[in-house]
Nucleic acid binder design. Sequence first.
DNA 1: GCCAATATGTCTGTATGCAGATTTTGCGTA
DNA 2: TACGCAAAATCTGCATACAGACATATTGGC
Lengths: 233, 233
Amino acid sequence: MENLEQNNLVDALLAPNGPPTTLRAHVVKILSAGILSGKYKPGDRLNESQIARELNISRIPVREALSQLQEQGLVQNRERRGMFVTNIGPEEVLQISSLRIVLETEALRLAQKRMTPHVLASLEKIVDKMDNWNGTLLDAAALDLEFHRTLWRASGNPYLERALNAVMVPLFAHKTLEHVTRDVRRWRMSHHRVLLDAVAGRSRDDPQAVLLTHMRMAYTEPERYSTLARKPS
Amino acid sequence: MENLEQNNLVDALLAPNGPPTTLRAHVVKILSAGILSGKYKPGDRLNESQIARELNISRIPVREALSQLQEQGLVQNRERRGMFVTNIGPEEVLQISSLRIVLETEALRLAQKRMTPHVLASLEKIVDKMDNWNGTLLDAAALDLEFHRTLWRASGNPYLERALNAVMVPLFAHKTLEHVTRDVRRWRMSHHRVLLDAVAGRSRDDPQAVLLTHMRMAYTEPERYSTLARKPS
DNA sequence: GCCAATATGTCTGTATGCAGATTTTGCGTA
DNA sequence: TACGCAAAATCTGCATACAGACATATTGGC
């Protein structure tokens, strides 16, 4: 029964849950989840007709959802060719990472200055979850993204938050596809506590240095592109 | 003859100029020009039906163009209410400016390192035009934006360039509406030569200091939000 | 005369249909 | 068997149409 999907969609819309929403918003969620989870891989073509058929809706909401995903950098449009999942190669990783340094360092510093007990509790909670993580790699990636997004929001500058989202979400989608051992994943996640200490003001380390260390655990040579990243040692 | 507009559009599409394009792309150009020029003012509602009627096309391309403009930060969607030209108040100017500091400083440093004679010539040309400027305030704003965009592109990092565009273009649109005397405008434009010298490596000044000075000529208190901006004096 | 409730009109969100372009498929040929 | 070309299938871009939501105007009540 392929219209189960459609029923899910329509049910969600008909249900009196929260504010009234649109089909497009739901398709956005479905598609971004598909990309983040690796169901759609970088370079894949997202056929709007096919997706519309699978969801038993017309092409219009799918089209607009794809357009919105383009805004978030997850897909790219090639005129009259269709939408393709953004492909991130080594070069792009370097460019994004170098931009991440300046943006997230700023976010970290701002968040530290404006930190509230409530936000701090949220971050602690996420890090605790990370420590006890024993689920799927997808869950781990979701936790990772959630931590950083909370941090970005805590900066108090919505433009900074938006820029970080636009740049980093595709990178996270790319990272999710990396197959690393659970131990490596666990080790990387454990480093978030260092970030937490820094943003909580419990650490003397320079925010930028902390971030660089954090990023070096996942990527190589962030300094090639950035003017800020200079290996301290 | 209201269908003159339509003829313009269709002519542009039928003309064998360059690569084949879409209606949406043209509407994007028309609308962003309208916003940048102040024809549509911040807070204005962009009625997609009305725009479609004016251009004698269907609502679909207009709709998609507005969606794309949202990506560039020029308009914002309120669900079932329509699209509104992004409104920028004093608070937003501060937030954008503080983000601009970190982004454009990085762009300036990267551009300096990667500067080529060709790019340098482009920048010189724009600054010369600025010196000889005697046209409309709109022209001045266009030159200003062109200079900075050239600079951003010269950074060589497309993600950085994109982030700067997304954040700064709405601010430029907002600035365009500011009514300042021609002398003030001329004075502000003249400072671009300082930026040019910095990016050309002809100056000993710190890029960040140069940028801060540049920004102080237009805005107040960029340091309130940023961790980087510290008044040197 | 003023406020509220209803009625009317307009707009957004979505569905369906069509034309041109692109990709795929199938066939013929080297 | 491999390659090239052409026809078919499919897809995107756009137009038209309709239903529900929102905004404004009108009317009724106090």
